[in-house]
């Protein structure tokens, strides 16, 4: 019963600006996906569209082959835990933590109340507190509780770690992995903070300015890159013919980030004249999306 959540040719325009340019993404069942992109890349918009919370200007979005738009059955299996707004139409959001929990209990078909209460206690969330009075960190934690306890076969978290410090972030990923080990459900986590995330995401989708620039297995992607440094001429010789993404020069030394096939990289590593080291997901992300700053 493995259902894929898929978008093809997705276009979204806000006012006069096209925010998503013909995006093709596919989320297979049972994987933990990382949707990474800079602020403003369009992550939330993409997630909104694929969960039918916003309509797309063009393209098809399907879950298990059926369109998601106004599809009661499909939407019952997808949970989109987005940032909870502290301001509602006429001022402060006066709903309380327990209101969100209650609503979730009444609306999510697979809701696990016990687990939810456990998490609330673990995070130290005050049930009676108004959402508008919560700190950023607590707000993130509420979102996390809603997502994890929803038990939805496809659970999407939009920047869940935005308000969390590093200790809380690591805790979150532990919880996520624990739950994943038990339920094997599909998780899609959007974030731009990558330190702890890289070892958690089996697959990764990189969104840059409304375009999907990479999509695939995290490990396989990261292993295509190397950091090469040494004397300028030797570096240039060593990386001839490879795709160079970043360059740093200082005096006679030069350092570059290259991307190439496994064969070429293995050969490169045999080269005694230059120093080679691998990149991590964060550095790959910066190399792929940070260039515009010159």
């Amino acid at each position: 019963m493995a259902k894929t959540l898929k978008a093809s040719g997705l276009v979204k325009v806000y006012g006069k600006k096209e925010v998503l340019h013909s995006v093709d993404v596919e989320f297979e069942s049972g994987c933990i996906y990382g949707l990474i992109g800079r602020n403003g890349a369009g992550k939330t918009t993409l997630l909104s569209c694929i969960t039918a919370q916003t309509w797309a200007n063009a393209g098809e979005i399907t879950y298990g082959g059926e369109p998601v738009w106004e599809n009661e059955k499909a939407l019952g299996e997808i949970c989109f835990a987005r940032e909870i707004s502290q301001i509602l139409f006429m001022g402060q959001n006066t709903y309380k933590v327990r209101d969100y929990l209650r609503a979730a209990k009444l609306l999510y078909p697979h809701w696990d109340e016990q687990y939810a209460q456990q998490l609330v206690d673990r995070f130290g969330l005050e049930r009676k507190k108004r959402v508008s009075a919560l700190s950023k960190g607590m707000l993130s934690m509420l979102t996390i509780v809603l997502a994890l306890a929803s038990n939805a076969p496809v659970t999407i978290l939009d920047e869940p770690v935005a308000g969390l410090d590093v200790v809380a972030r690591e805790d979150f990923y532990k919880l996520l992995l624990d739950n994943y080990a038990k339920t094997q459900r599909t998780f899609i986590v959007s974030t731009h903070i990558l330190d702890e995330a890289a070892s958690v995401f089996e697959k990764v989708i990189i969104l840059d300015d409304g375009n999907v620039i990479e999509q695939g297995n995290t490990d396989e992607l990261v292993s295509q890159f190397r950091y090469v440094s040494g004397k300028e001429e030797q570096v240039d010789e060593a990386v001839a013919g490879m795709k160079v993404l970043l360059e740093e020069k200082a005096g006679r030394s030069k350092a570059v980030v290259v991307r190439s096939s496994e064969q070429n990289l293995q050969q490169l590593e045999q080269n005694p004249d230059v120093d080679i080291s691998p990149l991590n997901l964060q550095k790959v992300f910066v190399a792929l999306t940070g260039q515009k700053e010159g």
Binding site: L177, A181, E196, S199, E202, D219
Partner: peptide, 17 residues
């Protein structure tokens, strides 16, 4: 696989690999 994943806070798929 799950025990290893838990020990190192990594994705079980990676541990399995």
């Amino acid at each position: 696989t799950n025990e290893m994943a838990k020990m190192f806070s990594i994705n079980p798929a990676t541990a399995a690999k």
